[in-house]
Design a protein around this nucleic acid. Structure first.
Lengths: 198, 198
DNA sequence: TCTTTTACGTTGCAGTTGCAATGTAAAAGC
DNA sequence: GCTTTTACATTGCAACTGCAACGTAAAAGA
């Protein structure tokens, strides 16, 4: 065989090209040749690593999810040990919201995939699992900090605002400031006004 | 000329077919011939009423927005004169959320268009105008009922939860019950627990 | 009545699509 | 050294795409 190649790395290379195409032309512009060109490879190579377009799409979706999870856990890690739940949530949400151009690009792709899975139910399950995880995380944080509210309910609301703010930010309906303000207000409603100390 | 034809009616007929196609196969499946077949007409006729596919897409988007506005104003109208702001908001949001199959179908199309406009900034403005209107409406309702909170901020948060719940409902992340519960909880946080009377 | 306009239907075309098939070169295993 | 396997590149094809072009029938206006 020729130079032993890391399959997963090649697939990721291609998936990254797909993400770039999707970010500025939408998923409709994603074709084998288009992606191959964006990745700087031949379309034959794309076919070599993905037997069908659908397989490529699924892999790209997995890559996007993975990257997102990574950003989340990095944000959590940056806060050091035992951070105040409210601070953790704010930091978490600020990294998830599409506030800078790069995360906006990723956000557009995420939105495109959301619409994509909405008409392909068999591909939607992983996304559901992700929100379940997120829901558990947030619920735990709220439960530990404020026993006056229903933790699961508050978490569900919080995630919904987050998602809604993301969508509105991507569409240019909300400015970055108003989105952050809305987020802050939401945290106030759950944890009481302002951070407890410092 | 032959039998005088209502152009707008024909266009709407075609746009409806487009919506049907988009609802169960996504916008990527929308092609002239596909839409024509779904509408039961020839693709030549589609071309007769829309010079380009883009023109057809824009018109369909306008139809979707229009229908949405109509549902909103009908919901408002159903409540009779001078309803309590909180009741109005709940009724409003319950009609907007994709809870039944039909509104889920429309929701999928809306989501698809959201992703569509995310990579076509020139088509996004009308959607922005719609949320501005919605924002003004909700802000006014909150201002009239509760002066303890910042009306604009609370309205922005409320719309964001609404949007987020819609997305999560479409994706099957939230059940209808938990979405409604989250909505109710959000209203509680703004208006205080439970409806004032009755 | 005759012309012109409108409302389509049909056909065709160049470009793109996903994918199969085939070719080829290189390196691993014997 | 020879075979086999791997990693691609190229080519080809049937199906589809948006769109232009052309045809035709009917009715409105002269």
């Amino acid at each position: 065989m020729p130079k032993r190649v890391d399959h997963d790395q090649r697939r990721t290379l291609i998936a990254d090209a797909l993400v770039r195409v999707a970010a500025d032309q939408g998923l409709e512009a994603v074709s084998l040749r288009h992606v191959a060109t964006a990745a700087g490879v031949s379309s034959g190579m794309v076919q070599h690593y993905f037997r069908t377009k659908d397989e490529m799409m699924r892999f790209a979706l997995a890559v996007v999810r993975e990257r997102h999870q990574l950003r989340v856990s990095e944000a959590v890690g940056r806060l050091g040990p035992d951070p105040a739940p409210r601070d953790l949530l704010r930091a978490l949400f600020l990294t998830v919201l599409p506030l800078d151009p790069e995360s906006r690009a990723y956000g557009r792709v995420g939105l495109a995939f959301l619409a994509y899975t909405a008409v392909r139910p068999e591909a939607a399950e992983p996304l559901r699992a992700d929100t379940r995880d997120m829901l558990d995380l947030v619920t735990g944080l709220i439960r530990g900090a404020n026993r006056a509210v229903d933790p699961a309910g508050a978490a569900a609301g919080l995630l919904a605002v987050l998602e809604g703010l993301g969508v509105y930010l991507l569409g240019g309906h909300y400015s970055a400031e108003s989105a952050v303000a809305a987020l802050e207000a939401q945290l106030d409603m759950i944890f009481g006004p302002q951070s407890p100390e410092k």
